[in-house]
Amino acid sequence: CHSECLGNCSQPDDPTKCVACRNFYLDGRCVETCPPPYYHFQDWRCVNFSFCQDLHHKCKNSRRQGCHQYVIHNNKCIPECPSGYTMNSSNLLCTPCLGPCPKVCHLLEGEKTIDSVTSAQELRGCTVINGSLIINIRGGNNLAAELEANLGLIEEISGYLKIRRSYALVSLSFFRKLRLIRGETLEIGNYSFYALDNQNLRQLWDWSKHNLTITQGKLFFHYNPKLCLSEIHKMEEVSGTKGRQERNDIALKTNGDQASCENELLKFSYIRTSFDKILLRWEPYWPPDFRDLLGFMLFYKEAPYQNVTEFDGQDACGSNSWTVVDIDPPLRSNDPKSQNHPGWLMRGLKPWTQYAIFVKTLVTFSDERRTYGAKSDIIYVQTDATNPSVPLDPISVSNSSSQIILKWKPPSDPNGNITHYLVFWERQAEDSELFELDYCLKGLKLPSRTWSPPFESEDSQKHNQSEYEDSAGECCSCPKTDSQILKELEESSFRKTFEDYLHNVVFVPRKT
């Protein structure tokens, strides 16, 4: 048989008469490798580009789960590009990614509803959504962080984005990388972005840091009482949809009607710091009717980097990364020049730590249904340095008659930039024990000054392991946590139920 035959053949030295091919099969003959313009397919066939392209389009058009959109890589027609490569849609070739590779997620039936953290986790790592997304989240724990972890990498949506009755959302900033909504599939009414009845939605994105392009379709905003109209108009300008909307697409009466839409800028007039305090004062603000001013709200939190936005980490279910302080308005003076500047002394802060701070007014709604208010920009203030805590785990070892090696770990709280350490030492008198000992005694162990690591005695271990207080009263049991108490109650309830079950099964009433 021919060298490319495997198993047997019907005619000697003829690659077209093989029972099976050793390498690849091409047009009725066995070959060692697939010549151009053919590609290896499933490690035994040679196919042309049209064959591989037909497989790709067949799966793409069917949208069946589990099928493969075949691509070409290293002269092979394979189910998908290997790690580190992405497909070129024009020629199906796998090309190296520039940075992290995109991950295209194809949605069944063309859309997916995100109504819980669990459903959001199914899209973790996706960068391109081939379909439409509907966000409908009523509640949950730590929602802002969970949504950002699972949806934060999405850069492109081919269909539309719909935010509907998501009472738990305060902001859409968890879509931190969303840059493009194509609108290839539109919501009824030709809408590519749809926001309806979101009672706590206050911000779409921080438009000073976020760009969003909507290729096709219109915007729809109705019944978002805490979303200011200025935020919607800003989205029109940034996304390129200005002029597409009709009169009733953006409701003037049901958007922002319960919001404090600040239209003035508060400026800080005085800032002073110490290692654990920050004193702030800002310019006074009074609405047209000074009785509408209820006070100020001061927001602050630790910020290692200057990239904080107002609604980071917030949701309507209680999660809030900001510390909020309510401040009463100052006494009002008739003389504008003698107006008191409101302020606040922030206490209990960490030394040498940068804080993000902003302040906003708290006002009631005027009778004319106009909203007044003022808010400052987010500023960054760093507390002063102070003395560091003591170095940890000092170790001293003498390696000769004239040297001592000293080692330690950095302090747990540096409280500033540590530039150097101060080492103090003092000579001590020799131990009298060394002169009084009889060095001729056998088995004498000389006193040693070398360091030995501390260890816990058996008594201390027994005390720590004991669940009861000892007789001397030195140790006591740790208080039980809520989960331990709940577990004990469940076990007790189970024992009672099981005992009742045994009584009912074992003891049967005697027939009379």
Rank of each mutant, 00 (worst) to 15 (best):
L196V: 14
V325S: 06
Y160A: 15
P351Q: 07
I404C: 03
T386Y: 12
D335W: 13
S158Y: 11
P329T: 12
L133M: 08
K253V: 08
S171P: 00
R244Y: 07
S208Y: 05
T371F: 05
A149W: 15
A356N: 00
N255L: 06
T213D: 14
E184A: 10
T185R: 11
T254M: 11
F268D: 00
E184L: 11
L133Y: 02
K103T: 04
K242F: 09
R291K: 08
T309M: 02
I327H: 02
S274M: 13
N263C: 10
S173A: 09
P342L: 08
G343K: 14
E310Y: 05
K234L: 04
N320K: 06
D249L: 15
P288A: 10
Q354Y: 10
L180S: 10
Q339L: 13
S333Q: 12
L108K: 07
L345H: 07
A145M: 12
I163Q: 00
I135Y: 01
E146F: 02
F220K: 14
A356I: 06
T254D: 04
K209A: 11
D206T: 06
A385V: 03
E237F: 11
L204R: 00
S208F: 12
K301W: 04
L201V: 06
L107T: 10
T254I: 15
S171M: 04
N307Q: 01
W322I: 02
D289C: 12
T127M: 13
G125W: 05
Q216R: 05
I154H: 00
S260A: 13
L204V: 06
L280N: 00
L178R: 00
S396L: 15
G183T: 02
M346D: 00
N248P: 11
N255F: 06
K277Q: 15
T309A: 13
R291D: 11
F175R: 00
D115G: 05
F275S: 13
D326L: 14
H233K: 06
I188P: 04
R369Q: 05
D393M: 12
N198V: 03
Q403M: 08
Q258Y: 11
E111R: 13
L298F: 14
L293V: 06
D289Q: 03
T241P: 07
E184M: 03
D292A: 03
H106T: 11
W344S: 09
T113H: 15
V117G: 14
N320T: 14
S319T: 08
E231K: 04
V325A: 15
E122G: 07
L123F: 11
L151F: 06
G152S: 03
K360Y: 02
A374T: 05
N263V: 05
R347Y: 11
D115S: 08
C261K: 02
G256A: 05
S400D: 14
G217F: 01
S338W: 07
S269L: 10
L298T: 02
V359H: 01
C317D: 13
R369H: 06
T353I: 12
N399F: 13
G243A: 07
V390G: 02
S239H: 02
I250N: 14
L153W: 14
S319F: 10
Q199K: 15
T309S: 15
G318S: 15
N263G: 15
L266S: 00
P342C: 07
L201A: 03
S338P: 13
E146W: 09
Q314V: 03
A144F: 15
K301N: 13
L252E: 05
F174C: 13
D315G: 11
Q339M: 08
I214K: 01
K209G: 11
E237Q: 12
R247W: 13
N263D: 04
R291N: 10
T371G: 04
P330L: 08
Q306F: 03
H233G: 02
D206H: 04
V381L: 14
A120N: 02
E236W: 15
Y300T: 03
D367A: 04
F358A: 15
D377T: 12
E155I: 11
L169R: 01
K267L: 08
S132F: 00
S132L: 00
L147F: 09
P351M: 04
P304Q: 03
